[in-house]
């Protein structure tokens, strides 16, 4: 069973539908026990960083997510869900993140269109099970803030939008995608499929 963590943010329907189409059982839930007992968890998110952290804290799901991250079972943050994995964000003020990965969420700044919206090409930076069997291609982004990783060892893929932009991150059992794999055609579905494959194997020992 895969769980999509429902903490009151984001488009949960399309993520869960995509997982279902790939043949995995999936539940959208805010029940900590159900989340903790699932083989893989997805942290979605559309909206503002501060609101999301507040919702996670108020619902008590922050602890659940932190506990899940330590379980060694695969967890995937999507879009804002990926940004939340990092230490801090400067989106409308200053906010602490889940601090599972070191790095900072900053605003795009420059004389170009913001949000970064549309299809952009992934460039793979290192090997990772999340990229197994895949070739570089296009995925769908919508975001005005992006992640500056502290350690390049966490950077699995980037895209180019007036600068290199963090697109896929990973560390042990934790993964994050800035774009929407569930809206990114065949390549997006393959990335999700690789994540679901990990959920079928034994937990990574942290």
């Amino acid at each position: 069973m895969i769980t999509v963590i429902d903490y009151g943010m984001g488009n949960l329907h399309s993520v869960s539908k995509a997982v279902e189409r790939l043949g995995s059982d999936v539940t959208v839930t805010s029940d900590p026990e159900q989340i903790l007992s699932s083989a893989g968890a997805i942290l979605p998110g559309v909206g503002a960083f501060g609101d999301a952290m507040r919702n996670l804290t108020e619902t008590g799901l922050k602890d659940t997510v932190l506990q899940y991250a330590r379980s060694g079972k695969p967890m995937l943050g999507i879009c804002l869900g990926m940004q939340l994995l990092f230490s801090e964000s400067e989106e409308y003020g200053h906010h602490q993140g889940l601090n599972l990965l070191p790095g900072k969420v900053v605003k795009f700044q420059g004389d170009y269109k913001i949000p970064h919206m549309g299809w952009n090409r992934l460039q793979f930076r290192q090997q990772s099970p999340i990229l197994d069997g895949l070739e570089e291609g296009y995925v769908y982004f919508v975001h005005s803030f992006h992640v500056q990783v502290e350690s390049d060892s966490h950077l699995i893929a980037t895209t180019d939008y007036h600068q290199p932009v963090t697109a896929v991150v990973g560390h042990q059992n934790l993964y994050g995608m800035q774009f929407h794999p569930e809206k990114s055609g065949e390549l997006g579905m393959q990335l999700l499929r690789n994540f679901l494959e990990m959920a079928k194997t034994e937990p990574v020992q942290a």
């Binding site: 329907h13 279902e20 189409r21 919508v142 065949e186 579905m189």
Partner: peptide, 11 residues
């Protein structure tokens, strides 16, 4: 909309 969201993988 519900059915479409279940069928397609583009926005």
């Amino acid at each position: 909309v519900k059915q479409t969201a279940g069928e397609i993988s583009i926005p």
